[in-house]
Structure formats: structure tokens, C-alpha cells
Nucleic acid binder design. Structure first.
Length: 167
DNA sequence: GCCAACGTTGGC
DNA sequence: GCCAACGTTGGC
């Protein structure tokens, strides 16, 4: 069942893409959990996007990397503004950061909510093949950023493709 | 499993 | 501040 997308009328809609290895955390995991903290990101640029630019209500493409096939598997939505990533404080966590402290946290994350899983993923191969996506980060060589902004034209086109594949 | 591309670290 | 060494990401 498709969930209601929150409407925040006073602000301009923004779009993002987040990556996850499906063996680590997949769109199905998000559907099961409904909401999750996007913790464990240890890249400053990705952190800055979450901490400084993401707003509640922004829409998020959910990308599976290192997957068969790699591609966009569904849609999520920013559910909270950024807060401290709890995993940085836990010595037993694989994302523990000894340089960080509760008083001076280094890493931030937002919570994201499940919206929809696409019936058929939009593969990286497809994105690279279509000239519409030529200047989209994810379709470019050497892109390693796990949280990245998405232009409205790309977002709209991707949703169109997803709808087409559903019908 | 390979390796290109990239980010981070630390010596100087 | 430079840059070599190293670690990680992620396509293939």
C-alpha cells in the first residue's frame, strides 16, 4: 500500500538520493521498519547535506549499491531534521568514532520514512543509457557520494519511469 | 575478485 | 600546504 506523502506547503520541495547496500539495509528493511535513522554515514559532504540542507518532507530516492542490479528501488521521505548519529558514541558499533563525544558530536543524520517500493527497479544501467540523466550525479563515473541532491527534472522523470513500469 | 576513483591521514 | 600512502566505495 502506498503511504501518504506529507505536504509541507510553505517550502520548496527538495529531492535527494541515498545509497545503501541491499545486504546491509534494503528498501524492504525500510518498509518493515517504516522509519529509520540514516546513521553510519562517515563522509563529510554527505553529512553536510543531511545536517544543513535536508528538511522534513523532502523526497528521497532509495538506491541499492553493489546490488544485482544496482539501481533505484523505491521512494522515502525525510521524517526528522538532522540529529546526532547515535552510532558514533557506541564503542561496540562498527561506525564508532573515538574522536567524537556526546558534547561535541561529529556525525549527524536524519530519519527517513518508507513511502513506496518500485515494482521494478530503475537500474544504473538504464540511468547511464538515458541522455536525460547525463548530468545526474549517480549516472556519472566515479560517483561515490552516498547522500546527494537530485534535480527536480531527474526526480520527476524517474517517478514517471517507475509509474510506467507499474502499469 | 579486480581495480579505478576518490577521501582521509599524517609526515615533512 | 603538499603529497604519498592508505582505506573505502562501488561498478563491473
Amino acid at each position: 500500500m502506498k503511504k501518504q506523502i506529507k505536504k509541507i506547503s510553505s517550502q520548496k520541495q527538495q529531492y535527494w538520493l541515498v545509497k545503501s547496500e541491499n545486504t546491509c539495509y534494503s528498501i524492504d528493511d525500510l518498509r518493515r521498519d517504516t522509519v529509520t535513522s540514516w546513521s553510519g554515514v562517515r563522509n563529510y559532504q554527505a553529512r553536510n547535506y543531511m545536517r544543513d540542507d535536508m528538511r522534513v518532507g523532502d523526497l528521497v530516492l532509495f538506491y541499492h549499491s553493489n546490488s544485482k542490479p544496482s539501481g533505484i528501488y523505491g521512494l522515502a521521505q525525510v521524517h526528522t531534521k538532522a540529529h546526532a548519529d547515535e552510532s558514533q558514541f557506541d564503542p561496540k558499533d562498527e561506525h564508532y568514532d573515538p574522536k567524537s563525544s556526546v558534547l561535541h558530536p561529529i556525525w549527524s543524520c536524519v530519519d527517513i520514512a518508507f513511502v513506496q517500493k518500485f515494482d521494478i527497479p530503475i537500474t544504473l544501467r538504464e540511468l547511464k543509457h538515458n541522455p536525460v540523466f547525463q548530468d545526474m550525479y549517480i549516472a556519472r563515473k566515479g560517483d561515490r557520494l552516498s547522500v546527494q541532491p537530485v534535480a527536480q527534472k531527474h526526480f520527476d522523470y524517474i517517478l514517471q519511469l517507475a509509474q510506467k513500469e507499474i502499469s
